[in-house]
Computed example of a mutant assay.
Amino acid sequence: MSGLFDTTSNYSFYAIPAAWVIAIAPHQYAILANKSNKPFDNRNPRAYVKSLEDNQGVDSATKEMISRAEAAQMNNFENLGLFASAIVAGNLAGLSSQTMNLLSGGYLASRVVYNFVYINNNTQASANVRSAVYVAGIGMIFTMFIKAGNALKGRAANLL
């Protein structure tokens, strides 16, 4: 199994642009889901969900799905800064490549699952799963910060 994944090289910085791609993916999905004669208007992208309210060419289930996809996108971008700063903190602290790869990869996987569950959410149970996946991803970010803080304890004065 060790030959399957290279744990000696640190790929965590590559996870930041990957997280951006995962963040924008629900928005692209929402645009493609609108098959009506009133497509996405890039002149005012933040009004997209509101513009669907009066659009008779889109059924209510699709409107709800588009709304959830847009909300997933926003949540992804709201978390991106925290994730990127955790990557920097972990690398600055000298956390092992294995640790950084595991935590950054786990975070990316959690965001993919989060997007899927959020977009397809139709029940309270799936909403609870979405929340659990969210907390798991945030837990990976916090773990990076805590491990970085522990690694830098006593060394922080030397960084300045």
Rank of each mutant, 00 (worst) to 15 (best):
M1R: 12
M1H: 14
G3V: 11
G3N: 11
G3H: 14
F5R: 10
T8H: 13
Y11K: 15
S12W: 08
S12V: 02
S12I: 02
F13D: 07
F13H: 10
P17W: 08
I22N: 02
I22Q: 05
I24Q: 04
I24C: 04
A25G: 02
P26N: 14
Q28I: 13
Y29E: 11
Y29L: 12
R46C: 00
D59N: 15
T62K: 01
M65T: 07
S67E: 14
S67V: 02
A69R: 08
M74D: 11
E78D: 02
E78K: 00
G81Y: 08
S85C: 11
S85W: 13
I87M: 12
N91F: 04
L92K: 09
A93C: 00
G94S: 05
L103D: 04
S104F: 01
S104M: 01
S104T: 15
G105I: 01
G105W: 00
G106A: 07
R111T: 04
V113H: 03
V117E: 04
V117C: 10
V117I: 11
V117P: 12
N120C: 05
T123I: 02
Q124K: 12
Q124D: 15
Q124H: 15
S126A: 10
S126E: 06
S131H: 13
Y134W: 12
V135T: 13
A136M: 10
I141V: 12
I141F: 06
T143I: 00
M144K: 06
F145S: 00
F145T: 03
F145E: 02
G149H: 10
L152C: 00
R155Y: 14
L160T: 13
